[in-house]
Amino acid sequence: MRAASLKLLALQVLVAVVAIGIWHVGSSVPIAGKYFLPEFFFSTPLDVFQRVVKLFVSGEIWRHLWITLTETLLAFVIGSAGGVAIGFWFARQPLIAAVFDPYVKMVNALPRVVLAPIFMLWLGLGIWSKVALGVTLVFFVVFFNVYQGVKEVSPVVLSNARMMGMTERQLFRHVYWPSALSWMFSSLHTSVGFALVGAVVGEYLGSAAGLGYLIHEAEGVFDVTGVFAGMFILSAFVLVIDWLVTLVERRLLVWRPQAAVGQT
């Protein structure tokens, strides 16, 4: 078990080494007098690395990370709360669900990026326009999952709880609620990811801080090194968040068979 995971890690590192190696050779070693990956378009791994280090050493990055993280968390919390509430409401009131069905589908089908300018107009260039964009993404993921979760409570579990003497309130607390939450948590990776997408895309389209802003700014002056450094930090940031989500998920879905949670 231990040896197998070490081997896996070694192979994963190997992929990174090979990719960076190709990038390095292509950008700094001329082949037949030509650079395979010209520095102007692709920068070099060393430059990108130095830029990342500089961003962290100068402390400039922390402000941007903090802004992006705040936006992501706010979008996630508000979007989830709304999704849970409306999902529950619709699942328990089929008439309401039927009335709003076409509108929900319509809004969900809309590419969220087109909403960004409107949110900026309404909420300004600060964090709230980014939060709003994230919320429109997170809301629907959570909403559909909770709706499904409440609808698909096992009828046997429900009958059993009723025979046990549960009141409607107790059914809500002990049956509907955990079932809906379990569906929501199983989409945690997707919804947190969407919250981040909302934040970064919002920043990219217009802001004065955040990772998206950093990348956009570098792009504006053809600073490819800056773009790559921003992308690298963004990916690392996503990995850390994803890892945290996995920890939370494992804690919350401990009652689920392992296969459904994902094995590591």
């Binding site: 096992s154 046997v156 579990v157 009958s159 009723r162 025979m163 003497g165 955990p178 009652w255």
Partner: peptide
């Protein structure tokens, strides 16, 4: 309404999976 004096053991699994 429901028969409050009786307990019912179902054929299928009726335990709440999210509780121990």
């Amino acid at each position: 309404g429901l028969n409050r004096k009786s307990g019912y053991l179902f054929q299928q699994d009726a335990l709440m999976p999210w509780k121990t």
